[in-house]
């Protein structure tokens, strides 16, 4: 019991546990749709795409939070615009978006006379050091994301399953995609602010891959992924505490472990199931 409680009793233990669990659950749920729509590259890129907003804010002496908001907004609009380019896959348009945005940020920075310092340390959180404001804002944003996910669940499913039938089912493809992008942008912004970019990426893909391997129904998958995300996040606290590894890296490792374990479980389960099907036929 003490082994379980020791890390929490110490300084920052409880903060770390709460921030990782909350972000883990939120990101896990969003991750299912990131997996189904193939948007992991986008999620990874969004953390860099904030750069122009941040640089411009520091150049004009505005607060970094405003810069980050502007950056998020710009990233959202740019992604939406570039994704409309004809004959361009989602990955290619993401590549164009992030490269252009980061280049824009670097060019703005080059034209200012004071350097831009390590924005990441200013804006990007660290799971061990989330402030109450960060946590509250993150939790609020993720709650909004969760509600949106719940409302959009069936439409996301219909579009991911069969995009060609969307019109007939009266599902607006462009609206659903805009909502999907909004959800991803909000989740990434919340997660990055509370835990930093590496744990955010890991929590967005790892639990979802695990849930995908374990579940044959999307509805259950979202719950399982949220649960797996929370567990991966909480587990990372213990890994960081006992192995003495950085908290962010520990999150990535627990997420990878969860995905790997679930995939192995599925493989063994599947090979037995497959022989069953053959016998049935």
């Amino acid at each position: 019991m003490d082994a379980l409680l020791d890390p929490i009793r110490g300084d920052f233990g409880l903060t770390t546990l709460i921030s990782l669990t909350v972000v883990g659950a939120g990101c896990g749920a969003v991750g299912v749709w990131i997996l189904q729509f193939g948007r992991a590259f986008l999620a990874e890129s969004l953390t860099h795409a904030l750069l122009p907003g941040l640089v411009a804010a520091s150049l004009f002496g505005a607060s970094l939070v405003i810069g980050a908001l502007a950056g998020v907004l710009l990233a959202y609009v740019a992604t939406l615009a570039f994704s409309r380019a004809p004959k361009t896959s989602a990955a290619a348009s993401t590549s164009v978006t992030v490269t252009t945005l980061v280049a824009g940020g670097a060019l703005i920075a080059a034209s200012s006379d004071s350097g831009y310092a390590a924005f990441e340390s200013l804006l990007f959180g660290n799971p061990v050091a989330a402030t109450r404001v960060d946590l509250a804002a993150g939790a609020l944003l993720l709650a909004g994301v969760t509600v949106t996910l719940w409302l959009a669940h069936e439409r996301f499913g219909a579009l991911a399953f069969d995009p060609a039938a969307a019109v007939s089912l009266r599902v607006s493809v462009s609206r659903v995609q805009a909502v999907l992008l909004l959800v991803i942008v909000c989740a990434v912004a919340a997660a990055v602010n509370v835990t930093g970019s590496l744990p955010a990426l890991a929590l967005l893909v790892g639990p979802a891959i695990a849930a995908d391997a374990l579940c044959t129904r999307i509805g259950r998958g979202v719950w399982i992924a949220a649960l797996a995300g929370a567990i991966c996040g909480a587990g990372a606290l213990y890994l960081s505490y006992y192995a003495d590894w950085p908290a962010g890296a520990s999150v990535a490792i627990t997420c990878t472990a969860a995905a790997a374990a679930a995939s192995c479980l599925r493989r063994t389960h599947r090979s037995s199931a497959r022989t069953g099907v053959v016998a049935q036929r």
Partner: peptide
Amino acid sequence: PVSYLPQHDRSRTDFPVSALDVTLMGTLA
């Protein structure tokens, strides 16, 4: 009102849904 089943079936076989779930998508609107 019109419902329409397009020719090119781009439905995904790896998407985790049951036959009933797919059928229920018809009640979405």
